[in-house]
Amino acid sequence: MPIITESKSAAVVIDEAKCIAEKGCTVCVDVCPLDILAIDEGRRKAYMKYDECWYCMPCEADCPTGAVKVNIPYLLR
């Protein structure tokens, strides 16, 4: 069967003005237990790539610039 792609809303939101991924920071990506964050190669900013969030918050707690906000995923909000 062919595979299709669906849209999802991202619970983890990055403030791109504060994110310093372009300086080589990958803290949020490193600490995520589910490995759902990534750095956008074009924009050089972190983003939530997979809708697999446990809303546990190490990404937010460990971000050195306070750029990450974890929202409760919509389905259980």
């Binding site: 237990p33 589910l34 697999e52 969030c53 446990w54 809303y55 546990c56 995923p73 389905l75 259980l76």
Partner: peptide, 15 residues
Amino acid sequence: LPASGYMFGTYENAA
């Protein structure tokens, strides 16, 4: 499966 239907909305760390 959590009642919310969110696959990673588990009690345990979903990993």
